[in-house]
Structure formats: structure tokens, C-alpha cells
């Protein structure tokens, strides 16, 4: 008779794996990546390629030669970091700056802590913030390169948020929200099309990769706070729709704040985490020295996750 396996139950397993989850995240980012390539052209393709290749390559080299253990690149998490990092830099960013960003993201923020699942901070955000602080010139050069689609009324030289930070409400008067929903030229690749990002969000929800708590609580907090400021002084502060649709709120809330490893485990914790990000984002935007605060907000809230996990548990059956 053939030999039989013996092991404790359960004897069956779901088809969902770390790899399939990461693949879904990559698929969800494709619309945004595609839009960025259409509008920013060859330079964006180069950025995506350099970012993904350096993230995956670095993880392989570090696992193999520094940590001397089997490389885990097949789980696709380095690909996710690579695409995210690419979507987080301006289209004119030189390739070597991106490589440095990848070194920080994968080498410092991820592998130093023990690789996937062990890192405290989202690697892509850590990489972006590192570049923003180290290479502010490259990271805020919003010259629009030639894309495959030529948008005639493209705003060059500043993002909408940047324009607002410099010129106040006057500078952003008359923007067309319908247009920002589809293509908002200027800014990092991932900020172009709110629509493409939302498609990715819906995909992640439908595939049950993420739960909506974190993303929705960020949106809610940003919207409510922006509404309060706008209601108090509409001459100084922009309206809530502007606050939601511009900058990295959508990109950050959908793809980076929802990172499993660096967000709280429970739904309750996720809401606290999301509210914290929304709050910090608005405060940094309106009172800080940077025009955009989403990255810093996520990074700061990443640090609070162990604390949130300690105090937020889900309701247990048969217990108060």
C-alpha cells in the first residue's frame, strides 16, 4: 500500500498565499502605473523599471549574501515596494536617486528588521521620506516630461498642493475637479489619476485583500478636518474635495497605510490608525513646512502600531 501522510487538522488550506496577495496588490496598482506611463512617457517607464529591479535585486542580494538564507523574492513583496516607490517620486527623478531610495527602503527599512513581516515602517514610504529629506531638489522638481498623451492644459512646475502652499487659495482657484478625478498632471506618478487609484481600491476590496476601515477613516478624517477649516476661513483654506483629491491622500490611504505589516491587526485599531493619519496629514499640510504630509503621517502612525495592537482587540465570543 502507498505511504500515507499523517498530520494534525486542518487537512485543507485556502488558495490565498502571501504571493497571491502581493500579486493582487501589484494588479491593483497597474491602472495608476499605466496612467503615469501614458502621461509621463519613457521617463516613467525607466523609473518603474529601475525601482522594481533595484528593490527585487537588493532583497535577493541581501538575503543571499548578507543574511545567508533562502531569498524570499518569490513572495512579490519587493515588487510591491518597487512599484510603490516609483509611483511616489517625480517623473524627472534621476535613476541613481531611485536606486538610493530602494537601498533605504529594502536594505534599511525592510531587511534590517528581518524582512517581510518584521519591518516597523512601510518600506516604500520610508524610502520616499528618506529621498525627500536627502534630495529635496530632485524630489520636488515637478517639470512634466513628454508623455505618450499630450495634455495641453498641463500645469507644469508645481503640484496643486505646492501651488496652494505658495500662493494660497487664490492660486488654485478655478481648478476643475472632474479633471483631477481623471488626470491631474504634475506631481508624482501615483498622484495623476484619482480614478485609476480608486479602481485599484475597489479591486483590493473585491478580492478581499484589504478591509476598508483604514482607508475610509483616513478619507473621513481628512474630509471632516478640511471642512472645519474651510468653514471657518474659506479665504485661507481649500475645500474638502481639494484636500482629498490632491497630493498623496488617495495613493497613501489605499496602498501604503493598508500595508498589512505596518498597520494594526484589528478593525478598531485600523480606525484609530486611519484617524491618526488623516489628522496628521491635515496638520502637516496646513501648519507644517512641507506642502504634503501623507508620507510623514503614515510613517509616524506606523510607529504607533505596536501600541495600538496592544490595546485594541476584537470582540471575543462569550466574553465582555
Amino acid at each position: 500500500m502507498n505511504k500515507l501522510l499523517v498530520s494534525p487538522s486542518p487537512h485543507v488550506h485556502t488558495s490565498v498565499s502571501t504571493q497571491s496577495l502581493m500579486r493582487d496588490v501589484v494588479i491593483a496598482m497597474l491602472p495608476a502605473a499605466l496612467v503615469s506611463v501614458l502621461f509621463y512617457g519613457w521617463s516613467e517607464i525607466l523609473i518603474l523599471a529601475v525601482s522594481v529591479i533595484s528593490c527585487v535585486g537588493l532583497e535577493y542580494l541581501i538575503s543571499k549574501f548578507l543574511l545567508k538564507r533562502p531569498a524570499t523574492i518569490c513572495d512579490l513583496s519587493a515588487v510591491v515596494t518597487g512599484v510603490l516607490l516609483a509611483l511616489n517620486v517625480p517623473p524627472t527623478c534621476p535613476w541613481w536617486v531611485i536606486v538610493i531610495g530602494a537601498i533605504f527602503a529594502i536594505g534599511v527599512a525592510k531587511m534590517t528588521f528581518g524582512g517581510l513581516g518584521q519591518n516597523m515602517f512601510n518600506p516604500a514610504i520610508a524610502g520616499r521620506v528618506f529621498l525627500l529629506v536627502s534630495f529635496p531638489t530632485y524630489m520636488t522638481d515637478w517639470t512634466v516630461p513628454a508623455g505618450f498623451i499630450h495634455a495641453t492644459d498641463a500645469v507644469s512646475g508645481a503640484t496643486l498642493l505646492g501651488a496652494y502652499a505658495e500662493g494660497g487659495v487664490e492660486a488654485i482657484k478655478g481648478i476643475n475637479y472632474l479633471q483631477t478625478l481623471f488626470f491631474n498632471i504634475g506631481g508624482s506618478a501615483g498622484e495623476i489619476s484619482a480614478c485609476a487609484l480608486l479602481v485599484g481600491f475597489v479591486y483590493l476590496l473585491v478580492r478581499k485583500v484589504i478591509r476598508p476601515h483604514i482607508t475610509l477613516s483616513i478619507w473621513g478624517t481628512v474630509a471632516v478636518l478640511a471642512l472645519i477649516f474651510w468653514a471657518i476661513n474659506p479665504a485661507k483654506y481649500p475645500d474638502p474635495i481639494f484636500a482629498l483629491l490632491t497630493g498623496g491622500v488617495l495613493l497613501g490611504s489605499i496602498f501604503m497605510a493598508t500595508d498589512y505589516v505596518t498597520s494594526p491587526m484589528s478593525a478598531k485599531g485600523g480606525i484609530i490608525f486611519g484617524v491618526g493619519i488623516g489628522l496628521l496629514t491635515v496638520l502637516i499640510r496646513y501648519f507644517g513646512s512641507y506642502p504634503e504630509g501623507v508620507s510623514f503621517a503614515i510613517l509616524i502612525m506606523n510607529a504607533t502600531v505596536p501600541l495600538i495592537n496592544k490595546y485594541c482587540h476584537q470582540k471575543k465570543y462569550g466574553r465582555k
Binding site: 487537512h11 485543507v12 502571501t18 517581510l116 465570543y317
Partner: peptide
């Protein structure tokens, strides 16, 4: 039925979501 090799916990919380005892 054969168990796949285990990898790092990615803290996705799917086990907690699935647990019928909370």
C-alpha cells in the same frame, strides 16, 4: 492536503478575521 512550507507572518490578520471565537 500536503502542507506548504511556512513563511514569515505578514500580519495580515486573516487568522483573527477567521476565528469564530474572536
Amino acid at each position: 492536503t500536503k502542507r506548504a512550507a511556512q513563511s514569515n507572518c505578514i500580519r495580515c490578520g486573516k487568522c483573527a478575521e477567521a476565528c469564530p471565537m474572536g
